[in-house]
């Protein structure tokens, strides 16, 4: 096999780097309000980098899928600027706040519509809800071997060999292609996309957007995430004291601190 056909699923989320002060909870509407610009979820960026590196090494095609109610072209075109060949948006009024299973259903339908592929990549989890479910459910739905938490991906002779992060280090896992892999940050950060490159991409052609109907997903096949309640986390102010003086004095002061905490 010479060429590799990769599909990668990315999620658009509010920047998870936003400071806590820019995040608020709307308990009434059960919504987390983040006052921050939209970005591609960080682990998905890692997956994108992995996909592009594989393409650079072996040739082939990288197709990017993203699902949402209203997606931003200017955020997602970054994938094209990074080197992906095609970007397909899955946009529908119904595609809002879907649970993991429904998200996987939509993605599976789109991937089936695309048809042929060798690898499906996704980030290990999304940077907003951190559930880490969609990738593996999607693999199940597509009937593919799945490997999670990849830190290194190599493809040879119709198989993929993945170094998978485990608490003790890593495992090497081999699977026949086509396969689905969820990618961890160890594969490396997405390359820097210069503003000139990004602007050039912004002037590129139209991006196809498929609706639920076009990929054959009916309303009752998908369900919204069911949030029971939402609360602001307790205030976790930290305090840092410097213990001054000679080592002996510092030790004595430290003992006092420990004693007072008992």
């Amino acid at each position: 096999m010479t060429e590799l056909n990769i599909i990668i699923c990315v999620k658009q989320i509010p920047d998870p780097e936003a400071p806590l002060s820019d995040v608020s909870i709307d308990a009434e509407n059960l919504e987390v309000v983040v006052d921050a610009p939209q970005v591609i979820s960080p682990f998905d960026e890692n997956a994108l980098e992995a996909a592009i590196q594989l393409k650079e090494e072996l040739d082939g095609k990288v197709t990017v899928l993203s699902m949402g109610k209203k997606l931003s072209d200017s955020v997602l075109r970054k994938a094209l600027a990074a080197g992906a060949d095609e970007l397909i948006l899955l946009e529908d009024n119904g595609f809002e706040k879907l649970d993991s299973h429904s998200t996987a259903t939509v993605l599976a339908a789109a991937i089936k519509k695309i048809g042929s592929f060798d690898l499906v990549l996704a980030g290990r989890q999304a940077g907003d809800w951190d559930s880490g479910q969609v990738g593996l459910i999607l693999g199940e739905m597509l009937g593919l071997p799945c490997i999670s938490l990849a830190r290194e991906i190599t493809v040879e002779d119709g198989s993929v060999i993945v170094k998978k992060t485990v608490p003790e280090g890593y495992e090497r896992v081999k699977a026949k292609l086509p396969a689905l892999i969820t990618v961890s940050n160890e594969v490396g950060e997405l390359r820097y996309i210069s503003r000139t490159r990004m602007l050039k991409m912004m002037r590129g052609g139209d991006i196809p957007a498929w609706t639920a109907e076009e990929i054959g997903v009916s309303d009752d096949a998908i369900e919204k995430m069911n949030i029971a309640s939402l609360t602001t986390p307790p205030d976790m102010t930290r305090d840092c004291q410097f213990l001054e003086g000679s080592p002996d004095q510092q030790a004595a002061a430290l003992v006092d601190v420990f004693v007072s905490l008992r």
């Binding site: 990074a82 950060e189 390359r191 820097y192 996309i193 210069s194 000139t196 490159r197």
Partner: peptide, 16 residues
């Protein structure tokens, strides 16, 4: 910077 792959991580994040 134009190529992207040689930009060190911290700098990459800083520019973003």
């Amino acid at each position: 910077v134009e190529k992207g792959t040689l930009v060190p991580t911290i700098l990459n994040q800083t520019l973003e």
